[in-house]
Each structure stands twice: as C-alpha cells, then as structure tokens.
Design a protein around this nucleic acid. Sequence first.
DNA 1: CTCGCTACTCACCGATTGGTGACAGCGGGG
DNA 2: CCCCGCTGTCACCAATCGGTGAGTAGCGAG
Lengths: 219, 219
Amino acid sequence: MLNEAVILENSPGAGGEPERRVRDRGATERAILAAAKGLLAEEGFQNFGINAVARRAGCDKQLIYRYYGGLDGLVEAIGTDLGTWVKDRIPEDAGGMFLLTYGDLMERLSLLLLDALRTDPLMRRILAWEISENTEQVRRLAEARSKALALWLERMRGSLAPPKGVDAAVVNAVVIAAIQHLVLAAAAGGQCAGLSLKTSKDWEKAALALKRIVRGVYG
Amino acid sequence: MLNEAVILENSPGAGGEPERRVRDRGATERAILAAAKGLLAEEGFQNFGINAVARRAGCDKQLIYRYYGGLDGLVEAIGTDLGTWVKDRIPEDAGGMFLLTYGDLMERLSLLLLDALRTDPLMRRILAWEISENTEQVRRLAEARSKALALWLERMRGSLAPPKGVDAAVVNAVVIAAIQHLVLAAAAGGQCAGLSLKTSKDWEKAALALKRIVRGVYG
DNA sequence: CTCGCTACTCACCGATTGGTGACAGCGGGG
DNA sequence: CCCCGCTGTCACCAATCGGTGAGTAGCGAG
C-alpha cells in the first residue's frame, strides 16, 4: 500500500550525506552510554530521556531499547559504570599516608571529598537526582553512587580506627551532608545560606570552616 | 446546536456533581495558589506545570494565565506568599530567650531549623528545586525562600553577637548546609551517607551529632 | 427586561514525549 | 550461491505538554 511511497521517500535521490553508520554494536553501545553520561552530567536529570540520549548518541532510540532494555537499563549501566569511579579518584599512595589522628584523617578526607565532588559533574547530578526523586530507577543509581563513595572513603581511610567518645558514623554523615550540599548549592546557584561559593577564595573560606568544624569534633 | 447537550451534561440531573463554580475571582485565585503550593509540596517540582495546577485547582488553565500571567507569575506568588513563613514559625517568646553564649544560640537554632525543615514539605521541595535547576523562575523563588529563612534566623538570633575568633557566617553556612542536606536526603531516600534517617531515634542521633559539631566550633 | 461586563469553559494548535512494529542492508554460515 | 540474522532506520502511535482564540454563562446596572 503505502510502501511504494515510503520507498520513494527513502530513495537516496540527489540529496545529502547518507553517512552510513558502521555496523558495530559494541561501538554503538559505548556511544549510547557515553551520550547518557554526558547528557546527565551536562544537562541534569530534568531533560534526561530516551529521545535526548538517542539524539546525542546519533542513533535511533530503538537501539537503546534493544541494547539496554530502555532507560532503566541504561541508568543501571551508568550505575555499574560508576564502579570505576574509585580507581580514577584514588591517589596511588593511598595506603602510604601517615595521618596520626582520626581528626587528621577526617579533615583530610573532608577536603578531598569536597574537591572530588566539585570536579565531578556527573556525581553531582546523580546526587541532585537522588534528592529530588524517589523512583526505583533513581534508587538503584543512588545505591551505586553511595557504594562508590563509601568504597572511596574506606580506601582513603586505611586502617585508622575512630575514637571511642563520639559516634563517628553519625558525625561523619553530617559532615558529608554539609559537603554535598555546599557543592550542590554552589553548582546550582553559586551560593548557600548567603555564603557566596564562586571564586576559589570563597572555597578556601568554606574549606577552612569545614576544617574547623571537623577539628572541633575530633580535636 | 450542541449547547443543549452541554447543558444537559452540566445540568444537575441525576448524574454526578456539577458543583457549579461560584463566580468569585478572589476565591478562584486563592484556590489556584493553594493548588500550586499543595502540588509543589506533595509532588515536587517534577510534574509541576500549568495543566497539573489547573487540574488540581479544578479550573481551566486559562484562568492561571489571566490571574497570574502564567506559571512564572504563579511561582512568584508562591514566593511572596512565603513571606508569611516567619510569622507562622516564630515562637512568641522569641525575644525573651536567655541564651548565654553564641554556642548556646547556634545549637538551639540548628535544632530548630532542622525541625522546621523536617515538618515543612513545601520548603523542602523548593530547596530541592533550587539545587536541581537554575532558571530565572527558580532563582526568584529561591531568593524568597532564602530571605524567609534568613529573616527567621535573624529574629531567632536576637541581639547576640558572634564571637571574634571564627568566621561565624561561613561556619553557619556550612552547618545550615548540613541540616538542609540531611533533611532533603531523609525525605527522598530515608538516609544520608549510610546513616538511616527514618525513626525519631535516628533523628535524635543526628541531632546529637549536630549539637556536638556546633559545640565543637563555638565551644 | 435588556445590555454589557466579567468570570469561566472549551476546542484546538504545534511540539515533544515514551514506545512499537515494519523494513532496509550488510555479512557470515549453511 | 542463497538465506537468515543482526544492525540500523524510519514511520507511526497515543498521551501530554504549554499556549491561545473564541465563545458561553451569570450577575449587576440601567
């Protein structure tokens, strides 16, 4: 019926550049994953969808369904891909640090985490996503992110034991919360609670305050 | 022509609830604003749009354009409406508190802010929105939120001066960041950095850690 | 009662979304 | 060699989005 018309419409006529995509499934899969990660990191989760990813990857969205089973599977793939985060971020001499006290350690870790998040837009976006939505999709991604971060912290910590007096887990969670929110607020609006967070001088002040806080609890 | 059919459909007949909307512009405006606030507080900013608000308000979206000039104006109205937040939240004896030190004050304010945010879904959603998007719309709303919060803090603070040694503004911003992130993470996923934040016992532990942190910096 | 203003509703628009089925074309295995 | 399977492309679907123009219904003034 309509096939003839369709065929005519698709006929290669004198038009533009066909630029036939090479038939390489692996490359296409990587392109899709990279497009998804890039899109999420640059644009955030707001306009993150099948169509946008396919557009950025330069392929048909059908392939996303075929290779990843839809957006959910793709997000999951981003999550598992986050497993490599630790390797990229761990300084090689992680085990060789000589930090005497738990306070030394936490001060150092806090500043490292601050910097790590500040320079990782993807992590930031996932963090923001976590906070704004509560679907299964996001929950799994959040778990992967959380695991990567926990692993990173563990590796960095080495074998230093926390002090007995205070509940270090809870205190650390509060400190991490502060760091994460500072970074998120800065990336979004350049300030937090009236404190400007744009120039490196701003960040130095924030880091100093953070140090003071950590020192305050852990002496 | 069709009028008869329409009239029949709307006629009070045996059918559903016609519930003819009374012709009261003021009431409609209030209904729209209430619908917008409720929708934002309950569903978040993700599905916050003209259609959704109109649906919840039970009126045509055209009225939102007419009375508020579109979503932007409506959001702005929500922002100005936030001006009353302080009055609703200030304990009457705000000026009569006898807090001896700045540390006493900040400890107390931190816990109050924690509770205030924990019991205010609208503020939380706005906060999350702030962090996830950076449009003019959100920026103005964020400003209103920020102003309301700052005013609240100022009123609560009274006339106690901060200590000289530390940069109180920066430290306080970090503490506030921690509080905000704890509340947001809890509302979204029930935990933050591995710390469960569901039961009131969890919150007691978090509050204790927060107190320790504040005490640590302000002595 | 009639007229006119205003509150209100409806129908429609183009764009975009997630999702699916059908088809084209290359390449390797029988 | 031919055929089948895999990769990639396209057209199409229903639903929803923000936005607009036209028209209806009720109330008060004359």
